[in-house]
Design a protein around this nucleic acid. Structure first.
Lengths: 131, 131
DNA sequence: CCTTAAATATTACGGATGTAATAAATATAT
DNA sequence: ATATATTTATTACATCCGTAATATTTAAGG
Protein backbone atom coordinates (compact mmCIF):
# COMPACT_ATOMS: atom_id res chain seq x y z
CA UNK A 1 0.00 0.00 0.00
CA UNK A 2 2.58 2.52 -1.16
CA UNK A 3 1.42 6.08 -0.84
CA UNK A 4 0.18 7.71 -3.97
CA UNK A 5 1.94 10.86 -5.12
CA UNK A 6 0.64 14.14 -3.79
CA UNK A 7 -1.55 16.04 -6.20
CA UNK A 8 -2.03 19.74 -5.56
CA UNK A 9 -5.40 21.43 -5.96
CA UNK A 10 -4.62 22.91 -9.35
CA UNK A 11 -3.09 19.65 -10.51
CA UNK A 12 -6.21 17.87 -9.39
CA UNK A 13 -8.28 19.95 -11.78
CA UNK A 14 -6.06 18.70 -14.57
CA UNK A 15 -6.43 15.15 -13.37
CA UNK A 16 -10.21 15.34 -13.39
CA UNK A 17 -10.00 16.02 -17.12
CA UNK A 18 -7.44 13.31 -17.76
CA UNK A 19 -9.34 10.71 -15.77
CA UNK A 20 -12.46 11.52 -17.69
CA UNK A 21 -11.07 11.68 -21.21
CA UNK A 22 -7.78 9.78 -21.32
CA UNK A 23 -5.97 9.16 -23.60
CA UNK A 24 -5.90 12.89 -24.15
CA UNK A 25 -3.42 15.34 -25.63
CA UNK A 26 -2.03 18.54 -24.14
CA UNK A 27 -4.20 20.66 -26.37
CA UNK A 28 -7.32 18.75 -25.56
CA UNK A 29 -6.63 19.06 -21.85
CA UNK A 30 -6.03 22.76 -22.31
CA UNK A 31 -9.24 23.26 -24.25
CA UNK A 32 -11.31 21.47 -21.65
CA UNK A 33 -9.77 23.41 -18.81
CA UNK A 34 -10.25 26.74 -20.52
CA UNK A 35 -13.96 26.11 -20.37
CA UNK A 36 -13.93 26.20 -16.59
CA UNK A 37 -10.84 28.13 -15.57
CA UNK A 38 -9.01 31.30 -16.55
CA UNK A 39 -5.59 29.68 -16.48
CA UNK A 40 -2.99 30.46 -19.08
CA UNK A 41 -2.20 27.52 -21.36
CA UNK A 42 1.36 27.88 -20.10
CA UNK A 43 0.16 27.29 -16.60
CA UNK A 44 -1.72 24.22 -17.68
CA UNK A 45 1.39 22.88 -19.36
CA UNK A 46 3.35 23.40 -16.18
CA UNK A 47 0.76 21.49 -14.22
CA UNK A 48 0.77 18.62 -16.71
CA UNK A 49 4.53 18.49 -16.62
CA UNK A 50 4.56 18.36 -12.84
CA UNK A 51 2.05 15.56 -12.86
CA UNK A 52 4.34 13.59 -15.17
CA UNK A 53 7.33 14.29 -12.93
CA UNK A 54 5.38 13.14 -9.91
CA UNK A 55 4.45 9.90 -11.59
CA UNK A 56 0.74 10.63 -11.76
CA UNK A 57 0.63 10.67 -15.56
CA UNK A 58 2.50 9.07 -18.43
CA UNK A 59 2.47 10.02 -22.03
CA UNK A 60 3.12 8.62 -25.45
CA UNK A 61 4.43 10.69 -28.28
CA UNK A 62 2.11 10.71 -31.23
CA UNK A 63 4.14 12.40 -33.90
CA UNK A 64 4.94 15.63 -32.15
CA UNK A 65 2.25 15.80 -29.50
CA UNK A 66 2.05 14.00 -26.22
CA UNK A 67 -0.95 11.93 -25.32
CA UNK A 68 -1.46 11.37 -21.63
CA UNK A 69 -2.81 8.51 -19.60
CA UNK A 70 -3.20 8.39 -15.83
CA UNK A 71 -0.96 6.14 -13.82
CA UNK A 72 -2.74 6.82 -10.56
CA UNK A 73 -6.33 5.64 -10.65
CA UNK A 74 -9.07 8.04 -9.72
CA UNK A 75 -10.90 5.78 -7.31
CA UNK A 76 -7.66 4.83 -5.58
CA UNK A 77 -6.71 8.44 -5.22
CA UNK A 78 -10.08 9.53 -3.94
CA UNK A 79 -10.16 6.55 -1.64
CA UNK A 80 -6.84 7.48 -0.14
CA UNK A 81 -7.84 11.11 0.18
CA UNK A 82 -11.04 10.08 1.90
CA UNK A 83 -9.21 7.92 4.38
CA UNK A 84 -6.72 10.57 5.28
CA UNK A 85 -9.46 13.16 5.50
CA UNK A 86 -11.51 11.02 7.86
CA UNK A 87 -8.43 10.15 9.85
CA UNK A 88 -7.47 13.75 10.30
CA UNK A 89 -10.84 15.27 11.06
CA UNK A 90 -12.97 12.47 12.41
CA UNK A 91 -10.45 10.03 13.86
CA UNK A 92 -11.10 7.74 10.95
CA UNK A 93 -14.72 7.34 11.95
CA UNK A 94 -17.08 7.93 9.07
CA UNK A 95 -20.08 7.59 11.36
CA UNK A 96 -18.79 10.58 13.29
CA UNK A 97 -18.83 12.58 10.10
CA UNK A 98 -22.37 11.55 9.32
CA UNK A 99 -23.36 12.32 12.87
CA UNK A 100 -22.01 15.82 12.56
CA UNK A 101 -23.88 16.31 9.31
CA UNK A 102 -27.10 15.07 10.78
CA UNK A 103 -26.69 17.16 13.93
CA UNK A 104 -26.19 20.27 11.90
CA UNK A 105 -29.09 19.63 9.58
CA UNK A 106 -26.80 19.48 6.63
CA UNK A 107 -28.72 16.65 5.02
CA UNK A 108 -31.88 17.00 3.02
CA UNK A 109 -34.71 14.54 3.33
CA UNK A 110 -33.78 13.17 -0.07
CA UNK A 111 -30.24 12.57 1.02
CA UNK A 112 -31.34 10.88 4.18
CA UNK A 113 -33.63 8.62 2.21
CA UNK A 114 -30.87 7.85 -0.20
CA UNK A 115 -28.55 6.94 2.60
CA UNK A 116 -31.16 4.75 4.22
CA UNK A 117 -31.65 2.84 1.04
CA UNK A 118 -27.91 2.47 0.53
CA UNK A 119 -27.65 0.97 3.95
CA UNK A 120 -30.61 -1.31 3.70
CA UNK A 121 -29.67 -2.69 0.32
CA UNK A 122 -26.62 -4.21 1.75
CA UNK A 123 -26.19 -6.06 4.95
CA UNK A 124 -23.35 -8.42 5.47
CA UNK A 125 -20.12 -8.68 3.61
CA UNK A 126 -19.78 -12.06 1.96
CA UNK A 127 -23.48 -12.57 1.76
CA UNK A 128 -24.43 -12.87 -1.88
CA UNK A 129 -26.39 -9.91 -3.08
CA UNK A 130 -29.27 -10.95 -5.27
CA UNK A 131 -29.80 -7.78 -7.24
CA UNK B 1 -20.03 33.15 6.17
CA UNK B 2 -16.53 34.58 5.89
CA UNK B 3 -13.93 31.98 5.13
CA UNK B 4 -11.93 30.72 8.04
CA UNK B 5 -8.16 31.14 7.92
CA UNK B 6 -6.18 28.33 6.35
CA UNK B 7 -4.55 26.00 8.82
CA UNK B 8 -1.70 23.85 7.57
CA UNK B 9 -1.35 20.21 8.55
CA UNK B 10 1.32 20.86 11.14
CA UNK B 11 -0.59 23.82 12.49
CA UNK B 12 -3.66 21.65 12.76
CA UNK B 13 -1.82 19.33 15.13
CA UNK B 14 -1.21 22.34 17.34
CA UNK B 15 -4.84 23.32 17.11
CA UNK B 16 -6.04 19.91 18.19
CA UNK B 17 -4.18 20.45 21.45
CA UNK B 18 -5.41 24.00 21.89
CA UNK B 19 -9.01 23.11 21.15
CA UNK B 20 -8.83 20.34 23.68
CA UNK B 21 -7.04 22.09 26.51
CA UNK B 22 -7.46 25.84 26.09
CA UNK B 23 -6.62 28.09 27.80
CA UNK B 24 -3.15 26.66 27.50
CA UNK B 25 0.38 28.04 27.61
CA UNK B 26 3.20 27.63 25.11
CA UNK B 27 4.97 25.18 27.37
CA UNK B 28 1.91 23.10 27.92
CA UNK B 29 1.23 22.93 24.21
CA UNK B 30 4.83 21.93 23.64
CA UNK B 31 4.72 19.23 26.27
CA UNK B 32 1.57 17.72 24.85
CA UNK B 33 2.91 17.72 21.32
CA UNK B 34 6.19 16.16 22.32
CA UNK B 35 4.22 13.13 23.40
CA UNK B 36 3.11 12.46 19.84
CA UNK B 37 5.61 14.18 17.58
CA UNK B 38 9.36 14.59 17.27
CA UNK B 39 9.17 18.30 16.57
CA UNK B 40 11.63 20.69 18.07
CA UNK B 41 10.09 23.06 20.61
CA UNK B 42 11.32 25.82 18.33
CA UNK B 43 9.22 24.42 15.54
CA UNK B 44 6.20 24.27 17.76
CA UNK B 45 6.70 27.90 18.73
CA UNK B 46 6.86 28.88 15.10
CA UNK B 47 3.61 27.07 14.43
CA UNK B 48 1.90 28.75 17.37
CA UNK B 49 3.14 32.12 16.21
CA UNK B 50 1.82 31.55 12.72
CA UNK B 51 -1.55 30.55 14.10
CA UNK B 52 -1.69 33.82 16.00
CA UNK B 53 -0.71 35.77 12.89
CA UNK B 54 -3.40 34.03 10.92
CA UNK B 55 -6.02 34.90 13.46
CA UNK B 56 -6.68 31.35 14.53
CA UNK B 57 -5.47 31.88 18.10
CA UNK B 58 -5.27 34.74 20.57
CA UNK B 59 -3.29 34.93 23.72
CA UNK B 60 -3.15 36.68 27.03
CA UNK B 61 0.04 37.43 28.83
CA UNK B 62 0.14 35.85 32.24
CA UNK B 63 3.22 37.38 33.77
CA UNK B 64 5.79 36.35 31.22
CA UNK B 65 4.08 33.47 29.48
CA UNK B 66 1.39 33.53 26.86
CA UNK B 67 -1.79 31.63 27.35
CA UNK B 68 -3.67 30.80 24.18
CA UNK B 69 -7.31 30.48 23.31
CA UNK B 70 -8.77 29.53 19.95
CA UNK B 71 -10.57 32.13 17.90
CA UNK B 72 -11.66 29.70 15.22
CA UNK B 73 -14.01 27.07 16.60
CA UNK B 74 -13.19 23.43 16.02
CA UNK B 75 -16.60 22.38 14.78
CA UNK B 76 -16.78 25.33 12.42
CA UNK B 77 -13.40 24.54 11.04
CA UNK B 78 -14.08 20.84 10.61
CA UNK B 79 -17.42 21.65 9.07
CA UNK B 80 -15.83 23.88 6.50
CA UNK B 81 -13.13 21.36 5.76
CA UNK B 82 -15.74 18.67 5.33
CA UNK B 83 -17.71 20.76 2.88
CA UNK B 84 -14.73 21.58 0.76
CA UNK B 85 -13.56 17.99 0.87
CA UNK B 86 -16.92 16.68 -0.27
CA UNK B 87 -17.13 19.38 -2.90
CA UNK B 88 -13.77 18.52 -4.33
CA UNK B 89 -13.91 14.77 -4.28
CA UNK B 90 -17.58 13.88 -4.36
CA UNK B 91 -19.21 16.87 -6.01
CA UNK B 92 -20.56 17.88 -2.66
CA UNK B 93 -22.59 14.72 -2.41
CA UNK B 94 -22.09 12.94 0.87
CA UNK B 95 -24.20 10.03 -0.28
CA UNK B 96 -21.68 9.46 -3.07
CA UNK B 97 -18.97 9.16 -0.46
CA UNK B 98 -20.99 6.70 1.55
CA UNK B 99 -21.75 4.77 -1.60
CA UNK B 100 -18.08 4.45 -2.39
CA UNK B 101 -17.38 3.25 1.11
CA UNK B 102 -20.11 0.69 0.94
CA UNK B 103 -19.08 -0.48 -2.53
CA UNK B 104 -15.56 -1.02 -1.37
CA UNK B 105 -16.53 -2.83 1.78
CA UNK B 106 -14.88 -0.20 3.88
CA UNK B 107 -17.61 -0.31 6.49
CA UNK B 108 -17.90 -2.84 9.27
CA UNK B 109 -21.22 -4.27 10.30
CA UNK B 110 -21.04 -2.21 13.45
CA UNK B 111 -20.53 0.95 11.47
CA UNK B 112 -23.39 0.13 9.18
CA UNK B 113 -25.65 -0.48 12.15
CA UNK B 114 -24.53 2.72 13.72
CA UNK B 115 -25.32 4.62 10.55
CA UNK B 116 -28.71 3.01 10.26
CA UNK B 117 -29.61 4.04 13.74
CA UNK B 118 -28.36 7.56 13.16
CA UNK B 119 -30.62 7.80 10.17
CA UNK B 120 -33.67 6.28 11.71
CA UNK B 121 -33.49 8.36 14.83
CA UNK B 122 -34.19 11.45 12.89
CA UNK B 123 -36.54 12.03 10.07
CA UNK B 124 -37.69 15.46 9.13
CA UNK B 125 -36.11 18.75 9.85
CA UNK B 126 -38.38 20.95 11.87
CA UNK B 127 -40.15 18.06 13.43
CA UNK B 128 -39.55 18.19 17.15
CA UNK B 129 -37.22 15.48 18.32
CA UNK B 130 -38.49 14.00 21.52
CA UNK B 131 -35.25 12.57 22.83
C1' DC C 1 17.02 20.94 -47.13
C1' DC C 2 15.56 24.81 -44.65
C1' DT C 3 12.20 27.84 -42.41
C1' DT C 4 8.80 28.29 -39.27
C1' DA C 5 4.86 27.32 -36.53
C1' DA C 6 3.70 24.56 -32.94
C1' DA C 7 4.97 21.73 -29.17
C1' DT C 8 7.76 20.73 -25.25
C1' DA C 9 11.47 22.20 -21.76
C1' DT C 10 13.63 25.39 -18.82
C1' DT C 11 13.61 29.20 -15.90
C1' DA C 12 11.22 32.61 -12.76
C1' DC C 13 9.31 34.34 -8.75
C1' DG C 14 6.49 35.24 -4.65
C1' DG C 15 3.88 33.10 -0.94
C1' DA C 16 3.06 28.96 2.10
C1' DT C 17 4.95 25.29 4.71
C1' DG C 18 8.07 22.32 7.42
C1' DT C 19 11.62 22.75 10.23
C1' DA C 20 14.63 25.27 12.94
C1' DA C 21 18.52 28.50 14.72
C1' DT C 22 19.72 32.89 16.47
C1' DA C 23 18.52 37.20 18.59
C1' DA C 24 16.11 40.07 21.71
C1' DA C 25 13.25 40.94 25.65
C1' DT C 26 11.94 40.25 30.34
C1' DA C 27 10.76 38.32 34.93
C1' DT C 28 13.00 36.84 38.91
C1' DA C 29 16.54 35.68 42.06
C1' DT C 30 20.48 37.66 44.15
C1' DA D 1 19.98 47.11 40.29
C1' DT D 2 21.84 43.36 37.64
C1' DA D 3 22.70 38.87 35.82
C1' DT D 4 20.60 35.09 34.06
C1' DA D 5 17.31 31.86 32.87
C1' DT D 6 13.35 31.72 30.32
C1' DT D 7 10.21 33.39 26.85
C1' DT D 8 9.04 35.47 22.84
C1' DA D 9 10.57 37.55 18.21
C1' DT D 10 13.20 37.58 14.13
C1' DT D 11 15.58 35.39 10.61
C1' DA D 12 16.70 31.26 7.63
C1' DC D 13 16.24 28.10 4.16
C1' DA D 14 14.65 24.35 1.11
C1' DT D 15 10.54 22.57 -1.11
C1' DC D 16 5.94 22.98 -2.99
C1' DC D 17 2.51 25.57 -5.33
C1' DG D 18 0.26 28.99 -8.33
C1' DT D 19 1.15 31.33 -12.13
C1' DA D 20 3.61 32.22 -16.05
C1' DA D 21 7.38 33.84 -19.50
C1' DT D 22 11.18 32.61 -22.29
C1' DA D 23 13.90 29.24 -24.70
C1' DT D 24 14.58 25.20 -27.30
C1' DT D 25 13.19 21.37 -30.14
C1' DT D 26 10.90 19.35 -33.92
C1' DA D 27 7.43 18.14 -37.45
C1' DA D 28 5.72 19.81 -41.70
C1' DG D 29 5.35 22.88 -45.57
C1' DG D 30 7.74 25.06 -49.24
Amino acid sequence: MHDLPKISEAEYEVMKIVWKYAPISTNEITDKLLQTTAWSPKTIQTLIKRLVTKGVLTYEKQSRVFVYTPIVKENEYIGQKSSSFLERYYNGDITAMLSAYIENDKLSEAEIDHLRSLLSKRSKKGEPSHD
